[in-house]
Design a protein around this nucleic acid. Structure first.
Lengths: 137, 137
DNA sequence: ATAAAATACTACAACAAAGTAGCATATAAA
DNA sequence: TTTATATGCTACTTTGTTGTAGTATTTTAT
């Protein structure tokens, strides 16, 4: 799979949360619903809650909730916040070889595809994603 | 980076070999030219030589050479032979969830991009790649 | 035959990603 | 103020990828 597990889980979690976007979700309730390793997921949540799209509420009856509408949260941002978007947008053939001066063997082929991908990721919001999702949560 | 080191190295090696495509290349001569870990590269060569685009010649004065024109060798084949193309063409959000019946959250967004990528990979030949490469070998 | 120079194979080492465990901290309800 | 139920943090384990080492095998030149 192209994306890491971390990115995969982050997107699945936020997409699920976006189905009832004003609700406060406990980590437990999410883990029970989605099939994601408990502790690994907790760490992702902690990281996500340092972003500007969800926040955490500690203590009893705590959890996570959106602080920004899922209409305005795009996949590119989510990926960037958990993995760093450069992980996927870098040159295909290693070490930042690609620049206007020196281009690697796949430069031209990859550039178009990468732009298409980035374009999709930065225009697809969580709300958008829900519409296209037949997945049962 | 999207692709694995194994795929990266395979493409770089074959692109280099394609610049003089009837020549017999020893592993040593390739390693000296490109900057690829020696033994790791040997293993990749052995795997590649089990494909239908290059063959190995053992013994003294041996090496590797194309058994098919680089005009007709496409990136998708190379990737498939070293990593398996499914590694990159699978569903973004895990476990073959995507099917006509059940689609994952990123299904629609990803499908277009994936097709674009696959299209590029299966239409870009080694010869094609050389034309677009400013890289010094 | 023997030596030289090449590939083939197998086992191990180092590193990064994914997943687990346990304890610390925070907060609301009783 | 105590208890229950949350999140936060840190260290460890497992697994997969990348890289290394050494030996066996193959073949040509002498």
């Amino acid at each position: 799979m192209i994306f890491s597990k971390t990115t995969e889980y982050a997107i699945r979690i936020l997409t699920y949360m976006a189905t009832d976007y004003e609700k406060l979700y406990s980590a437990k309730s999410i883990v029970d619903k989605l099939n994601i390793p408990n502790k690994y997921m907790r760490r992702i949540m902690t990281n996500l809650s340092k972003s500007n799209f969800i926040m955490s509420i500690q203590g009893r009856d705590g959890g996570y909730k959106f602080i920004k509408s899922p209409d305005n949260i795009y996949l590119a941002e989510i990926i960037d916040s958990v993995d760093g978007i450069d992980k996927y947008m870098g040159c295909v053939l290693g070490f930042n070889e690609c620049s206007p001066k020196s281009t690697c063997a796949m430069h031209k082929s990859w550039t178009e595809t990468k732009e298409k991908l980035y374009n999709t990721l930065s225009k697809t919001s969580l709300s958008n994603l829900i519409k296209n999702t037949i997945d049962k949560f």
